[in-house]
């Protein structure tokens, strides 16, 4: 199994859940299919879904929930 680091597509604030009182889109260890929503990036008050482009198992998040991220910064690791 190869581990891939997936970069953040946009700069902004990363959210792991659709709203504060809902469960996370994905947890570490979850299976991931292409097109699955990994999280949200808030850019200038608009929310953009981060979709998986590689299928596999989500190994680790490299950015905390509600943390600021830059475009290109590694966001999560996936075992494919």
């Amino acid at each position: 199994m190869a581990t891939t680091q997936v970069p953040c597509p946009l700069p902004g604030t990363f959210y792991r859940r659709p709203s504060p009182d809902q469960p996370a889109f994905k947890n570490e260890g979850d299976p991931v299919a292409v097109g699955d929503t990994i999280g949200l990036i808030e850019v200038m008050k608009t929310f953009n879904e981060v979709k998986a482009e590689i299928a596999g198992t989500l190994k680790a998040f490299l950015v905390e929930d509600e943390e600021a991220v830059m475009a290109g910064q590694p966001l999560y690791e996936i075992d494919a």
Binding site: V43, M44, K45
Partner: peptide, 8 residues
């Protein structure tokens, strides 16, 4: 550099 965190 316009930060992405606030309104546009």
């Amino acid at each position: 550099t316009i930060p992405p965190f606030y309104d546009s």
